[in-house]
């Protein structure tokens, strides 16, 4: 702990590094399960949850996760009657997303809360504390535990959800676990990259890792490595350029999209 206090850069670096590990790992699962859009919704729905938690004096983690889960449940409810493949479910998701962001911003103003909106949206590693580090450690451990215990079922969920249902796998529980874990990761990553930028760290390394991957395990390993590299690159650039690390990390994600998928080899 003394070392953490003396070396001011160590804690932010650890937080960034853990973020770079946990976001791409989860992102790889979310991309293959085609759950990216609902994850984006969760990221924005964290804001009103955090604001309500601050207003009531509740733990921020609880408020953020509650907001994210409530928004997903609301969206699922509103999408239930919309035909899949019509584009309507995506429109519902985006509307709920925008509304959640709006509710969060309005609540901050209406309740006159001392909330650092910039920090929440774009991250501020310099104010990251040991509790941010602990949240990320817990999120990473839970994700690894889920992968260890339910890897085959997670594979089925991504490969063929209908086939998984035919095999009478516990899909509802698995989806709920994934949603809870996603909410936890999004809230935990707020310190490093913020709610608005976390999707870049969730998606870009996963997309690059999936390019030409022959197994989910291989894609997960690649994504974690790329995410870790991106985090350290963003932090290094931040020191060199004296710019905030969160946006720099998100900017570094963009070139990864030039890696094209190669299904035939």
């Amino acid at each position: 702990m003394t070392m953490l206090l003396e070396a001011w850069w160590l804690l932010p670096l650890l937080v960034a590094g853990l973020c770079g590990l946990v976001c791409p790992l989860l992102g790889t699962l979310l991309v293959v399960q085609q759950r990216v859009l609902s994850t984006n919704l969760m990221a924005y729905a964290v804001l009103p949850g955090v604001v309500v938690a601050k207003a009531l004096g509740w733990p921020v983690l609880l408020g953020g996760m509650g907001g994210a889960m409530a928004a997903v449940l609301l969206a699922e409810l509103l999408m239930a009657e919309r035909p899949a493949g019509s584009g309507q479910p995506e429109a519902v998701l985006n509307t709920v997303l925008a509304s959640c962001l709006a509710v969060g911003v309005l609540l901050i103003q209406a309740l006159e809360l001392p909330v650092d909106l910039d920090g929440l949206l774009f991250g501020d590693l310099l104010v990251a504390g040991p509790e941010d580090l602990m949240r990320l450690v817990v999120a990473l451990l839970l994700l690894l535990l889920l992968l260890h215990l339910r890897f085959k079922q997670l594979q089925w969920l991504g490969l063929d959800p209908d086939g998984a249902a035919d095999r009478e796998l516990p899909l509802r529980g698995l989806r709920l676990a994934m949603a809870g874990l996603t909410a936890l990761v999004v809230v935990s990553a707020t310190a490093a990259v913020g709610l608005a930028l976390v999707m870049a760290l969730i998606c870009a390394p996963a997309l690059a890792a999936l390019s030409g991957a022959t197994s989910l395990g291989q894609a997960l390993t690649r994504a974690a490595g790329l995410g870790l590299g991106l985090s350290f690159l963003g932090c290094s650039m931040s020191l060199a350029l004296n710019l905030p690390p969160g946006p720099l990390m998100a900017c570094c994600c963009l070139p990864l999209l030039w890696l094209k998928p190669s299904p035939r080899f």
């Binding site: 293959v32 991504g158 022959t214």
Partner: peptide, 26 residues
Amino acid sequence: GQRRRLALVPQAPSLRWHYPINLAGL
């Protein structure tokens, strides 16, 4: 409890063919 003993190969399978897995893995 015994639906695994039946297998349906649908006309339009829901299987996601771009999933990162080889044939033996599938």
